[in-house]
Amino acid sequence: MTPLLTPGLTLGPVLFNWPADRWRDFYFRMADEAPLDTVILGEIVCHKRAPFFADAMEAVVARLAAAGKEVWFASPILAGNDRERAAMRDVVANGLLPVEANDMGALALLAGQPHAVGPFINTYNEATLSWLAGRGAMSVSLPAELPAASVAVLAKAGAALGLAVEVQVFGRAPLAISARCYHARAHGLHKDGCQFVCGNDPDGMPVKTLDGQSFLTVNGTQTLSHGYLCLAGEMDRLAAMGVSRFRLSPQAVDMVAVATAFRAVLAGQRDGRDAAAEVGRLVDAPLENGFFHNVAGTAYAAEA
C-alpha cells in the first residue's frame, strides 16, 4: 500500500445487498470502464450477506488488480457479537490486501502494519489524526458529517503527518449503524430469520415522514440519507485544502458515468458545478451537501 498523496478517486465498498452476479458484474465493469484509483471491497454492513459473494471475490480482486486499480478490504462497521468479530479478524488476516479499519477493534488488530482508517472510525480532529498516524495509518477517510472548516484543518494536519485525507464526495451519506435490523423489523421479521429482505432494495429501502416527504434510506442495520451526498461542486476547494482522496460510494446508478464525471473535475477538465448537474440527472433523489457547509445534511447549496 502506497501513501496516495497525489489526488485519486476511491470507490467505497458496496453497502447494499446485491445478488452475487450483480455484485460481480458491477466490479468487473468498474475494473474495465471506471477511472478509479482504489477500490475497496468487503461486506461492512451485515456479516450474514458475505457468503453470497465470497465465491466471486477472487475473480473480482484479480480483474480489478489487472486493470491497475489498487484493491483494499474493509472491515465491518459494527463488530459486537462473535460472528461479527470473526468476520473482522478474517478481513485483517486476509494476508493479501491492505485493510481499511472501520472499527477500533480492527485498528487494534492492524497494529504494526500499514493500513487505512475508514469513515466509521471517528476522526474529528488533528489530535486523533496524529494518534492514528502514529499507529501506521496511511490514509484516513473522514466521517461524512464533518464541515469544511474541520476538513481543512484535518487535510493540513494530514499533509504534515504524511498521510492521505479522504472525503466522501458521492453517494448516500451513512448516518447510523445498529445491532437491530430495520429492514427485517419493517417486514415484521426478526434479524435471525430475516429472509434477506434487504436484497429487495438494491439502493436501500425508502423511508418517508408521515407527511410523505422522502427522508431516509434503510439498508439492513444501517441508516443512510435519502438524498445523494454530492461534493462535485466543492472538489476544487477540497483539493486546495489538501484533501487528496475522493470517495464515491456505490449506488444502483451508472457508477461509470459518476466516476467519469468526478475524474474529469479532478483532472481540471470539467467545471465541478457542471459535473454536479450531470450527477443530479443520474440519480433519482436530490443532491445534498449540507454537512460540508455546516448546516443540516439534507440541504444543498450551490458552491459560490
Binding site: 461524512a144 448516518l175 445534511g297
Partner: peptide
C-alpha cells in the same frame, strides 16, 4: 439509543 452511540449522524442530517 437503538443506534450504536457516537456513530449516529441522524440529528445533524435533519438539523446540522
Amino acid at each position: 439509543c437503538p443506534m450504536a452511540e457516537g456513530r449516529c449522524s441522524l440529528s445533524s442530517y435533519a438539523t446540522g
